[in-house]
Design a protein around this nucleic acid. Structure first.
Lengths: 229, 229
DNA sequence: ATTCTTTTTAAGTACAGACTAAAGTGGACA
DNA sequence: TGTCCACTTTAGTCTGTACTTAAAAAGAAT
């Protein structure tokens, strides 16, 4: 008997999985379960709290703990750093800056990041390769009002992602996945056909309400973002 | 002072965000932090454990707790039940069965689900609508060896997803997102143009190592799967 | 110097007890 | 009948103590 709370958690999970406690059923309260499992209430509490975290049960004061009807409500995706992802596959990582410009912040970007009008942004486009074959196209916009030092940074050798990680301590972010069609330029960069369907990840990040960057990551053809749960 | 552990957690998070403790830095140990915050070690432990869960720090016995270099490593996505998602937008949900057939399990499906050869599967295609406009195309395969009762179920009125939730208590799953091109049939169902890029979610589920179902969910044009963290 | 062993340190877990805060329940009252 | 408030139940949290375990560091043996 190594970790009691894990055992309790797995036993409760087992009973839910096997239908002993069906959807919307109310579980026994913590005191009773603690007695049944012969452990402290805190132990049962931890087990059930983690099950609630995972979306398996719902807990409310006084109302008790009940089994949620839908099997799974959430999945965790690990958002990889491109270089690590490529190296993790045993391939050689290569980065290249395609284009760099400083321009007035376009309206669509101001709207997306919630910016005041009038600032400048650094617009970078770059490519990430694995063993010389195109892996990801990066279209990056950095808010120079919040990060003026980005204008001086050397993005010829260091990718903007890694530069930002080192420069900005931490941030809130919004990420979304969707699909898009490769048009001429992206098709050329990614070495796919014009019109191919591509997987797109977009991320906006803020540092304490100040918008930092917005990025569009277009993945190679056939890319799949996968997770188990 | 309502919840001490939350305060501790937010203060630690603040220090990391603001760079007081930078990437790869070692945090003070639990005993010291407990003294600083004037609380029990268990309280600090809970705060740091949750930060570790969120991917902000890494904890190792003896080695202590250190700040992880990359700002965010993971994002949680809520996988919605189609009906709830549509109703949540205030739209009227409608479901329609497009096709139903029972066939020998195709090889690609056996490979994907890790099945023995020889069984039959129920293949369903259906549509989900919100306010009469197409929302999602569902291409569902149910393993009749594991779930023979599916052959008798009435999928004219109940969607396979909701039927499965009620029938199979719980399961492991693998989910992946990618992009695909609308070909004629799907374009017709989803009311988009041939060749449009569409967002695809695929999910395989198992119940205690027995494969239950594989489903391809093709979303309406322009669908975005979004989360904040 | 290298490898093995022991020690030490910091996190991981457990528990009993206590108090808090929601949220149903039911009764008093208008 | 309907509204509101006191009561009760149940999860949420904190504390202090104790013991366990992993792993780094230091020491010992080769």
């Amino acid at each position: 008997m190594k970790t009691a709370f894990r055992d309790v958690k797995e036993e409760i999970r087992r009973r839910i999985v096997q239908g002993v406690w069906g959807p919307d059923d109310l579980l026994p309260n913590e005191v009773d379960l603690a007695e049944e499992f012969d452990c402290a209430r805190a132990t049962v509490n931890r087990a059930m709290r983690e099950l609630a975290d995972e979306g398996m049960v719902e807990r409310k004061r006084k109302a008790g703990t009940r089994v949620l009807p839908s099997p799974v409500r959430q999945a965790r995706f690990h958002i990889p750093i491109v270089r690590k992802e490529i190296e993790g596959r045993g391939a050689q990582y290569r980065y290249a800056l395609v284009n760099r410009e400083i321009i007035d912040t376009p309206d669509w970007l101001r709207a997306r990041l919630g910016l005041e009008s009038g600032g400048k942004v650094l617009h970078l486009t770059c490519m990430h390769y694995g063993d010389s074959s195109p892996y990801q196209f990066e279209d990056r916009w950095i808010n120079l009002t919040a990060l003026p030092q980005a204008a001086e940074a050397d993005f010829d050798t260091v990718g903007p992602n890694e530069w930002l990680i080192a420069e900005v301590p931490y941030s809130d972010a919004e990420i979304s996945f969707s699909a898009l069609t490769a048009e001429a330029e992206i098709a050329k960069h990614l070495g796919c056909a014009d019109g191919d369907p591509l997987f797109l990840a977009e991320r906006s990040t803020w540092f304490e309400t100040r918008a930092i960057t917005y990025v569009r990551l277009v993945f190679q053809r056939g890319y799949r973002m996968t997770t188990r749960y």
